[in-house]
Amino acid sequence: MNRTALLGILLAGLISGCGSNVTLKAPTIPEPLLEQIPMSIGLRMPENFENFVHEEKVYGREEWSINLGRSNAAFFEQLFGHMFADVTVLGPNDDPQLLPLDALIEPSIDAFEFSTPDQSKTDAFAVWIRYRLRVYDREGKLVSNWPVSAYGKSLTTKMNSSDALERAAILAMRDAAALMIMKFDNVTRISALADQPGTESEPADASQTDEEEDTEVQTTALEGSQDEAG
């Protein structure tokens, strides 16, 4: 490579500004203290859960690429594995009605957002993830459609940016897990689908069940709780 080419590359780098790439390792959800729901469920995940990449250019600053890889898939496999007695992960061509399942859950991701210390004028990275959980009965009828908003925050002190952002994303996933463990059955009424033939019930109204549950659960705060009820 001659000098001109090298100089060109250096100049291009300077002009384009810095880029940050973060690759998230699959999170490990600790074994929760809960009463497992005695059901056999199917779990069908969208294609992008196997390789989810979020790219964003922070206005006037650097470009971020956050590669969650199959973190979302691993997260839901672990979480529902703890929450339900029996979980079958379905492939894209599997027909759930041919399997002995009580219900089918389809998680998806509506939004992934983050803020950097420059944006928030703090020392912290913050991550917001909005999942959506669709629950179907054994007849394939949608019985619940629940948006779950989760939040994680990590200070940058003694960490590089990548570590702090990764930590914030993992905390957001743990936050989502905590919310689902606390409220899944109350919001989706999934346990009513156990060993029952398909019912004619209307999809569960998440806003009503959230209000009922809020009076019982000893939460410290529900940031973005209006979204959860949505």
Binding site: L33, L171, R174, M182, V217, Q218, T219, T220
Partner: peptide
């Protein structure tokens, strides 16, 4: 926090002794 997951997460941790 891990041993008592999810009951001491930022969202679920008790805010007062009465909880």
């Amino acid at each position: 926090i891990d041993s008592l997951f999810p009951w001491f997460e930022p969202r679920t941790a008790p805010a007062e002794t009465k909880n």
